[in-house]
C-alpha cells in the first residue's frame, strides 16, 4: 500500500468573523492506492477532490483522520516527503514558472534535494516525447500540450513512487488530451509509479485508472473497479456521470 487515507475529515471555516460556518471539504474519506496502481478520483468542483489531492500530497493537514505513505503516517514536516511524491497540476499555463527556462524547471526537484543534475533533464525530456533542445526555451514558447509534458518530466525526475495528477489534461485540446493520457500510461509501465488521477471528466479517468472513486459533497459515494464504470455503477450519482458522457 503506497498511500492510505483513513477516515480523513477536513473542515474549513468560512464567512465573516462572528458568523463563521464550518464547511466540510472532506468527510470521513477513506481511500488507498496500491503499489503501481492508478486510482481515479472523479467529482465536480466543490466535491472535495482537490482537497483530497492536497491532503494526499501533504499540503494540507487533515482535521481528523490519518494519512500514511509507504506504510508510515505523515511526519510533521512536508520536506520529509520531498522527491518521493510529486504532482502534475491543472493549468498548463501556470504549471511552469514563466521566468525560468524549461530545463531549470525540470531540474528543480533534483536541485532542491541537493543532487547534482547530470544529463537527467535532457533524458527525461526525451522520455516524455520532447526534444532535449526545449530545455533552453521559456514556457511561453511552448504549446499547452508541450508544457504539460514538461510538468510530467519535472514530476518524474526524482523517480517518485507516487504522483498526483490533478486535472492534468482538462485544459488541453481533445486531440492532445489523449496524447498526454497515453504518455501517462506508457510512463507508468516504464517507471512503475502509483498515481492518483483527479478529474471531473469520467471519460479521462476511466481511460487511465485501475479503480475509480467518485466524490460528491466531500464524501466518497462509490469506489469500484474501472470495469464497473463502463457498464453499471451502483450509485445514482455515478450513473448520472456515466450518462453525461
Amino acid at each position: 500500500m503506497i498511500l492510505e487515507l483513513d477516515q480523513v475529515t477536513v473542515t474549513f471555516s468560512t464567512g465573516p468573523p462572528l458568523r463563521r460556518r464550518a464547511l466540510h471539504a472532506m468527510r470521513d474519506v477513506s481511500l488507498h492506492v496500491g503499489e503501481g496502481e492508478t486510482l481515479g478520483l472523479v467529482g465536480e468542483s466543490g466535491s472535495g477532490k482537490t482537497t483530497t489531492g492536497r491532503v494526499a500530497l501533504g499540503l494540507r493537514r487533515p482535521t481528523s483522520g490519518t494519512v500514511s505513505f509507504e506504510g508510515r503516517p505523515f511526519g510533521r514536516r512536508r520536506r520529509e516527503l520531498a522527491g518521493r511524491m510529486q504532482a502534475v497540476l491543472q493549468h498548463p499555463h501556470w504549471s511552469l514558472n514563466p521566468r525560468m527556462r524549461v530545463g531549470r524547471s525540470v531540474a528543480e526537484p533534483l536541485v532542491v534535494l541537493g543532487r547534482a543534475e547530470r544529463g537527467e533533464v535532457r533524458e527525461m525530456l526525451e522520455q516524455v516525447g520532447l526534444e532535449a533542445e526545449l530545455a533552453d526555451r521559456y514556457p511561453h514558447e511552448l504549446s499547452g500540450g508541450q508544457r504539460q509534458r514538461v510538468s510530467i518530466a519535472r514530476a518524474l525526475i526524482t523517480r517518485p513512487g507516487f504522483i498526483v495528477f490533478d486535472e492534468a489534461v482538462s485544459a488541453l485540446d481533445v486531440s492532445v488530451q489523449v496524447q498526454i493520457l497515453n504518455l501517462i500510461k506508457d510512463l507508468q509501465a516504464d517507471f512503475g509509479f502509483s498515481a492518483l488521477f483527479i478529474s471531473h471528466d469520467l471519460g479521462a479517468v476511466r481511460y487511465v485508472a485501475d479503480r475509480i472513486a467518485v466524490m460528491r459533497g466531500g464524501e466518497v459515494v462509490e469506489t469500484a473497479d474501472t470495469e464497473t464504470f463502463y457498464t453499471s455503477p451502483a450509485h445514482d450519482y455515478s450513473k448520472q456521470l456515466l450518462r453525461a458522457l
Partner: peptide, 21 residues
C-alpha cells in the same frame, strides 16, 4: 500558481520559493 505549489511539493525551502518563484 501551480509552479509555486509544484516547488513546495518538491520540498523547496522558503528562500528558494520566494527568491526564484
Amino acid at each position: 500558481r501551480d509552479y509555486v505549489t509544484a516547488a513546495v511539493i518538491s520540498g523547496a525551502r522558503l528562500p528558494r520559493i520566494l527568491g526564484r518563484h
